Simulated scan of single mutants.
Amino acid sequence: MVQRRRIAALSVLTVITLAYLVWFTPLLGVSTVEVTGARAVGEQRVRAAADVPLDHPMLRLDTDAIAARVAALPGVAGVDVSRSWPSTVTVTVTERRAVAYHDGGDGIRLVDSAGVLFQRVEAAPEGLPRLEVLDPGPADDETTAATGALASLPAELAEQVVAVAATTAGSVEFELTGDRTVRWGDAEQNGYKARVLGVLLGQDGTVFDVSSPELPTVS
């Protein structure tokens, strides 16, 4: 009986000791931080923003706080922070992808498909269309309608777009190469409109109206 009690007490002590070592000491602390996906944003910027404390116990690491700090970087669309035992933390970044640029009073900025203006650049990027809206941003209906429509275009159509404009959320228009105009309308049925437009552009004309894709017109 005494022997059993000693074994039980020793087992409890062992569990407590291991828990203490894992929870409060650097025994299973962070020794390596890996960053993936940060090509444009830059690995060093992500590391600095993440600010992962080395030797901090892995179990006590606040991965949500790390992700929030990295997500605050302008070019970051999403972040995942994971633990790889025994001592590695991996920060996986999804970067914003520019679909247009906006040239406003505060300079030229890149815009992603959600309407977020995320990076200033010195000159208009070659191959990106110009976004023409009054108040650009993700909370602006005209912006999100325009960028959503633009993002829905297949590459062979998107590369022909010089500018995308919207005075209302239902009046998106594309300016194409060759002095052609596309009246897109609202951001509904974007995929359907893109397919119809691909067919219409094979016809002679300068104005292609797919705002009602069931009844498109060319003039």
Rank of each mutant, 00 (worst) to 15 (best):
E188M: 07
R60L: 08
P136W: 07
A169T: 04
V93P: 06
A77S: 15
D179G: 11
G148A: 04
V89E: 07
Y101P: 14
A165D: 08
R96C: 10
G198M: 10
L117F: 03
A65T: 12
G107L: 00
T92A: 15
D103N: 10
V133K: 05
E122N: 05
G198W: 06
V161T: 12
E159H: 06
P57I: 03
V164R: 02
P129Q: 12
F118M: 12
Q189Y: 15
A124G: 09
D112R: 01
D62Y: 09
S87I: 00
V199E: 14
A194P: 05
T168H: 03
K193T: 10
D141A: 14
L200D: 07
I66P: 01
S171G: 15
A145S: 15
V196W: 08
L153H: 03
S82E: 08
G185H: 05
L176I: 09
A146Y: 02
L59T: 01
S84E: 13
Y101L: 13
E142I: 01
G115I: 12
V121E: 06
G148K: 04
R69V: 13
T63C: 00
A77W: 02
D103L: 09
T63R: 14
T63S: 04
T92W: 03
R183F: 09
D112F: 02
A72P: 01
P136R: 00
P57E: 08
D62W: 11
L176K: 04
G115Y: 08
A169W: 12
G178I: 12
P138E: 03
V76R: 03
L73M: 08
L61K: 10
W184F: 12
G115E: 11
A187P: 03
E132A: 07
D135G: 01
G127S: 13
L197V: 14
V76W: 08
L131I: 04
Y192L: 15
V70G: 11
E188P: 08
S82R: 12
V79H: 12
S82V: 02
R183D: 00
V133N: 04
L131R: 01
T181Q: 11
P86W: 07
A155W: 06
A155M: 07
A124H: 13
Y101V: 14
E126V: 14
